[in-house]
Amino acid sequence: MSLKIGWIGCGRHATQMLLPQLTRCGVRLEAICDVDRTAAQATATQYGVAHVTDDYAALIAHQGLDAIGMAVGPGIHQKASIMALETGLPVFMEKPPALDSTGARAIADASERTGKPVIVGFMKRFSTGNKIAHNVINGGDFGPVLGITGIYMTAPTYFVGEVDYSGFFLHHCVHYMDLVPWLAGAPIVDMALRKNEPEPGKLLLHVNITCANGAIGTIVMGTVQSRGTPMEQIVVMGDHRRVEVNNIIDVTYHRNPAFKADDPAATLTGETDSLTWRPNFTAAVNEDHKGYHALMIETVAALKGEANNAPTIADGVVAMENLERMMALAG
């Protein structure tokens, strides 16, 4: 039987990224909500949904729902998710879960109290390249993670009118506050920061971290690059091991190959030489390398009460705590 979902929020991100992937996972959209009734009706028409409202409380109260999904904003995420939980409905929400860690903890408390899961949309864990890197690191041969470098950039135009950087921190930086410790395999226990702000709205941060397992790292984030260029890079260091992910779709795993210049029998070996993966974009298949489809598969399993690897509100609390520490250092 299909999971019947009530959905809150019909903006561009929800309609172009989330709902197309969610509806591939054997669910039925039963009710739609947005304060913009035109946007709500357009989404309802696209998915054949009869019940449309501009009141999220009315949507949550709609009879026959099995779960609530939402991509609205951190303030509404907190209010609507707690309301849904207290109605007995599990929740999927896009990140960030709330405006601050206190709000995220309030959701986590409600989830524990009601026994209903809350899944947070940290899709970076499910991006193909990051997934491969995580599996390599945890495959048994990589050994302990010694260091990690992450670069995740965006442009100043993405945050026009928000020169306090609130949108940049909450909607952009929060991703790597979850992804980097997930790849490192341990929570962040120490953090320092340097910044360069050439003018209001343009910011470059270098965030230095130490994780509980001893891994050290640097996270570079800022609003000083064009969104038309590659925006992401991850490098995870081990002992004579290194996995690199460029732009989420180009993965190289370096080991400890022999020098080849003076070896007349030089060849390539799967045991020591570097391995590289790139996707085939000419294949006529609906592959989602950004990770939304894989996230939704895990989300639907979680909402059904099945075994899953979906990021939970507990992960959201940790990411928000990391983010607040970083924001405090950034001043």
Rank of each mutant, 00 (worst) to 15 (best):
I8R: 11
W277R: 10
V136G: 02
I82K: 03
S166L: 11
D54S: 15
T23D: 04
G64F: 11
G228C: 06
P257G: 09
V207N: 06
A108L: 06
L275C: 03
D190T: 05
K124Q: 10
Y176C: 03
G103V: 02
N322P: 06
S111V: 06
P117H: 13
V145P: 07
R12I: 13
P198K: 05
G185F: 08
V174S: 14
R278M: 15
T210E: 12
P117L: 13
D239F: 00
N246H: 04
L29E: 14
R113T: 06
L89C: 05
L99P: 02
K304H: 15
N138S: 14
A265T: 11
A266N: 10
G69A: 09
M221F: 07
T87Y: 00
G270E: 12
N246G: 07
K131L: 11
P264D: 06
K79T: 15
T114G: 07
G238W: 00
D141W: 04
L29V: 09
E232C: 08
H172V: 01
A258M: 08
K290N: 11
G331A: 09
R242G: 08
R105C: 11
L170K: 14
A57F: 11
I219N: 09
N138G: 10
P230F: 00
N208T: 08
H172S: 14
V49D: 02
F126R: 00
G167D: 03
P90D: 12
P257C: 06
A80T: 02
I248W: 05
G11A: 07
Q233H: 12
R105D: 01
T157N: 13
L170N: 13
G291N: 07
A192H: 10
G161T: 06
E86D: 11
I234T: 15
R105T: 06
E162C: 07
L99C: 06
M153W: 09
S81Q: 01
I297H: 11
F168P: 00
A57T: 15
A261S: 13
N308C: 11
A266F: 08
R28Q: 15
D250V: 01
Y253F: 11
L3T: 05
H62V: 01
T128S: 13
K304P: 00
N308T: 13
R24G: 08
G270I: 06
Y56V: 01
T157M: 08
T128R: 12
R37H: 04
I188M: 15
Y165W: 03
M320L: 15
P279N: 03
G291D: 07
V251Q: 06
W7E: 11
E112R: 12
R227C: 08
G228V: 01
Y47E: 12
A133V: 06
Q41N: 12
N213Y: 04
H77G: 02
M326A: 12
N130H: 12
C25T: 14
A40M: 01
Q233L: 14
N322H: 15
P181Y: 11
L303R: 02
L65N: 09
L268F: 15
A283C: 13
A80E: 11
L179R: 01
G228I: 00
C173M: 13
I188V: 14
Q21L: 03
L29H: 14
L65V: 10
D109A: 15
I5T: 07
V120W: 07
E197W: 02
I8F: 12
L203Y: 04
